[in-house]
Structure formats: structure tokens, C-alpha cells
Amino acid sequence: MTEFTLWDIVRNLLLAMRWTVLLSLVSFIGGGLVATLLLFMRIGRGRFLRFVAKYYVELFQGTPLLMQLFLAFFGLGLFGINVPAWLAAGFALILWSAAFLTEIWRGCVESVFKGQWEASASLGMGYVQQMRYVIIPQALKIAIPPTVGFSVQVIKGTALTSIIGFVELSKAGTIVTNATFQPFTVYGLVALFYFALCWPLSKSSQILERKLNVAHRSH
């Protein structure tokens, strides 16, 4: 039996971590794009589109991400026989991220003070102009800290893709554990690597939030 050194373990985990980072980026950016579309449906004037976006969010926030992954894996399989794990993983994580980002951003748009709508209306702006020039620029600023905070949830969410067979950091942890029989060390290291990815993002989200609050208090 091959002897594994600590360096072997670390190296294998770090190699797999690239996929965690890549999948996180794809999910976050893809989710952001879908969320932008959903957001405009959600806060727009079309009653039907508003309804669709609202229940999309409720559905994805009310069911486990793991189930969404399974359904994507087997559901996509209904269209073609062999669905690679990365495709199902990316697909499900994008849709899942989109739901949460839509809800976060909607909260930001709604937290823009009502007087801003009234003032811009009294100056003759239409709905689209109000959104474009007055509401969205202010909402964007408020949205940065919670959006950065959510990126942490996306990174942690990618761990579940190991269950449908995508080899990223968690899956590599399981594979390495099976080879080394050192679950304590391996899962401890896996946890530390996730921490190294997530903690800087959590912290910067907190700092940004604090800055924003200070800026708000000064008026």
C-alpha cells in the first residue's frame, strides 16, 4: 500500500479546489445574470411576470439544494441519456443562486426610500427612467455587501455537487480519505481550505456593510 504524506493530501485537495473555485464563479456569475432578468420581472409592472418570478424564488428557496441537484441530474437526463455531473451541477447552482440573488436585490430596490420615487415622478420621469437613473444606482450600492456575503453561500453550496459525482474539494476529500484512512486530517484540511476561500469574503462583506451604515448615518 502506498504511503501518503501530508503534502500528498494537501496537493490533491488543492488541485481539486480549482474546480470548487471555477464552479463557484460560474454559478455566481450565471446566477447573477439570471437574477437580473428575474429581478426586472419581479419589480416590473407585468402582473404575470411578477407572479412567475415570485414563485420561482419561493420554489428554489423552499426546497433543498441537494434535491435541485438530483432533479437537474435526472431531469436533464430525460432529454439526453448521459448528463455529465458538471453540467447538472452548474445548471442547478445557477438556478439556485439566481433565486437568492433576486430576493436579495429586490430587498435592496425596495429599501430605497419612497420619497425617491415621488421626487423623480414629480420631475416628470417615467417608470423606466426612475429605475434607470434614480432607484437602481442607489440600490446597487446597498446591494454590494449582501451580494458579496451570498458568494460565500455559493462556495459552500458547491460542496453538495460532490454528491452527484462532481469532483471538487469535498469529493476529493472523500476520495483521499478512502485512500489514506485519515478522515480527521483530511476533512479537517478540507474545512480549512473552504474557510480560506470563504472567510475573506465574509469579512469584506461585513466591512462593506459597516462602511455603508456609517455613510447612511451621516445624513
Binding site: E118, A119, S122, L123, V134, Q138
Partner: peptide
């Protein structure tokens, strides 16, 4: 109408950005 009639609010409602 709003091009003919301007409005000033109690809370100013300037655009903070």
C-alpha cells in the same frame, strides 16, 4: 402635468447618489 407643476417635499428627497 408634472412638466407644468413642480413639487417640493418636506423631506427634500434629493437623489443621494
Amino acid at each position: 402635468l408634472r412638466l407644468k407643476v413642480g413639487m417640493i417635499f418636506q423631506q427634500f428627497n434629493l437623489f443621494p447618489h
